[in-house]
């Protein structure tokens, strides 16, 4: 399963409609929040607040977040990818934290 996860990570940070560097920033921003509870700002601000919500309180995301992101210039395909990367990072980072603890316990 770990191999499947790493293949998935490679996929979502690989070819796509949105810039790879932006997806990488999003992935790492979520990873930092999960691991350290510290946020690093990313531009534009509409994207920054959206990514913060995805990790911290996704149930607070509204239609307005998408309206603002589209106004900033993001296409639907870009938003599809960015959202998947952020949500995947949230789950994957927790898995890595849990598995690392488990390995430390066993060794």
């Amino acid at each position: 399963m770990v191999k499947l996860l790493s293949d998935l990570k490679e996929n979502v940070l690989g070819a796509g409609y949105s810039e790879i560097s932006l997806r990488s920033l999003v992935f790492n921003k979520i990873k930092n929040i999960v691991k350290t509870d510290i946020s690093q700002g990313i531009e534009p601000s509409s994207l920054n607040s959206y990514i913060e919500k995805i990790e911290r309180n996704p149930y607070k995301i509204t239609d307005d977040d998408f309206v603002n992101l589209k106004k900033t210039g993001f296409t639907e395909d870009e938003l599809h990818e960015i959202t998947i990367v952020a949500a995947f990072s949230s789950g994957e980072t927790r898995i890595q934290i849990g598995l690392k603890l488990l390995d430390n316990q066993a060794s």
Binding site: M1, I54, E55, P58, Y59, I61, D63, T83, I84, A86, A87, F88, S90, G91, E92, R94, I95, G98, L99, L102, Q105, A106
Partner: peptide, 25 residues
């Protein structure tokens, strides 16, 4: 250890899917 590992993966999956469900409404 295997049981805990399996539970961690379930947790990770749900953390991803919960966020997709709320973000995409």
């Amino acid at each position: 250890k295997q049981a805990v590992e399996e539970a961690i993966h379930i947790c990770g999956i749900m953390c991803t899917m919960n966020r997709l469900a709320d973000a995409f409404n």
